[in-house]
Amino acid sequence: MNIFRLAGDLTHLASVLVLLLKIHTIKSCAGISLKTQELYAIVFATRYLDLFTTYISLYNTLMKLIFLGSSFSIVWYIRKHKIVRRSYDKDQDTFRHYFIVLPCFVLALIIHEKFTVREVLWAFSLYLEAVAILPQLVLLQRTRNIDNLTGQYVFLLGAYRALYILNWIYRYFTEPHFVHWITWISGLVQTLLYADFFYYYFQSMKNNGKLQLPA
């Protein structure tokens, strides 16, 4: 464990807690893409399969439970909660996310570290995580300005993966033959997807206005 990875995990944790807090306190999910939340639930379900079989550390198990629990409860809130669901903007959140699930799955069948169920699902979860934010970014473009909590959520989500890239660089130089192209390329693509959002996010911080995304 190194500082970059710990910072990345805590940033990731903060992003889901910010989102849960927002939905739980103001009982609204305005501006949040259910599709992205469903994709994240799939990412965690397919990546944390080994939760019950291999024990790595208390930290690892605890974090996996928190991520699984929070992502599924966010999906439940938006789909089922009688008040929250009313604020879900389903005719704006129209990204056909099955069109990214299938290609990711096909890609995982082609490119993986080993052709076993666990490895293929693990690669699938990495590819899917890289593009899971797309419905949310599309929704932000459509609804133009977004409230601060959603902005913070997306920012923290992007920052976590950027910190992970620093972690991979650190591990590459400190651990012999630590080479994992699948993880590295997926993580890089994921972070690049956030790049333009980061640009507008910092712009809005500078001129202290609401976050205005260009049409």
Binding site: D9, I56, F67, N167, R171, H180
Partner: peptide, 10 residues
């Protein structure tokens, strides 16, 4: 056992 170290990441 190949402790695939990348798998200990979240």
């Amino acid at each position: 056992v190949d402790t695939d170290s990348i798998k200990d990441e979240l």
